[in-house]
Design a protein around this nucleic acid. Structure first.
Lengths: 192, 192
DNA sequence: GTCTATACCACGATAGAC
DNA sequence: GTCTATCGTGGTATAGAC
């Protein structure tokens, strides 16, 4: 927050956010208690409230963490040469995490879905984070010379969110693999 | 359950299930209280427990209701002539409900997503219901002569689940419309 | 800044009168 | 079968000692 915080404080706060991201993902936000997060972060329960006054603030911090993580991933992908390669790189990352998806779904999509039902948390933060991903995809399609880049970007992210849900519902990681291969072929077929 | 129940009893039970389906959808399962459902169904709170001993039983009844509703929808679509027409009919239904999707997401997808986080409820029921939809889609693609019907059926339902999530996250019904049109064109392009 | 003990409340579920 | 009143549990949040 402000400058020059003692290292210990920064460490605890960070551990709490990391724990929140993890436990929200695995157990769901509604079923997660502050005590669950405190335990994983190895911080006494009451002390959590020194860093986050409410559970909602912890959720917001978790969303922020997702946004940062996503930003870094896309920076990595931007180093790849052609837009097709970057898109295929994104898909490859999804397929790599297919076992996780089968267990818990998409780390951010499940959060977005749950947060829609929680009116007090700012949807704006969730939507903005999802938009980072959609915008990036649309930019790649545009660089490929596609006039319909806008709808293709949406379609790609939707395909991922949807196959994450099905992979999770059927607990079958191979669904993600098959769909990833199909999407990669589709992208190659779109080259202008 | 057993035969020859008085009409009044059947009426109340049915009202409770209808209310559960509606409120679970709009407010989310975790945030919904028995009192919420009782109120919408116009049944006194304590009386709910005469029909359903636990909240989980109410959830199971709601899933069952989704399965029945889905079964009827697919029967309707089966009356249409060609498999392409049936698939386009399915998509048209999704697009018609785009405003609802923007508000609350896919009625069944959001439930499936939430139930993954609730270990006590039988996933089997959820997966079986989703499978009805996937199987039906795969059958249509197979009738169109596609060898890859299995992956196309999964891809179609995933596309719908994903665009429902994005439509909801961005609160923008037009996303569903644009993706629906794209999917319809895609299906036509697949005709053997 | 750290941690324990606890206030307070909401919800699921039950007891028992009618 | 119907309904009211209430219990018990568990979770968020706080008070206040250290």
């Amino acid at each position: 927050m402000t400058d020059l915080q003692p290292a210990v404080k920064a460490g605890k706060r960070e551990r709490l956010v990391d724990a929140a991201v993890q436990v929200f993902y695995e157990r769901g936000v509604e079923k997660t208690t502050i005590a669950d997060i405190a335990k994983v972060a190895d911080v006494p329960v009451g002390n959590v409230y020194y860093y986050f006054k409410t559970k909602d603030q912890l959720i917001e911090a978790a969303v922020e963490a997702h946004r940062r993580r996503l930003g870094h991933l896309l920076e990595e992908l931007d180093r790849l040469g052609a837009p097709q390669e970057r898109l295929r790189g994104l898909i490859a990352g999804w397929v790599d995490l297919r076992d996780q998806a089968a267990q818990f779904g998409c780390p951010f999509g499940t959060l977005a879905s749950e947060m829609d039902k929680r009116p007090d948390v700012l949807d704006a933060e969730i939507a903005a984070t999802m938009r980072v991903l959609v915008d990036w995809s649309q930019r790649q399609f545009a660089e490929m010379g596609r006039e319909d880049a806008a709808e293709l970007g949406v379609a790609l992210i939707a395909a991922y969110q949807g196959i994450s849900l099905l992979t999770n519902t059927f607990r079958d990681p191979s669904l993600m693999k098959v769909e990833g291969d199909r999407l990669a072929r589709w992208i190659d077929s779109l080259a202008a």
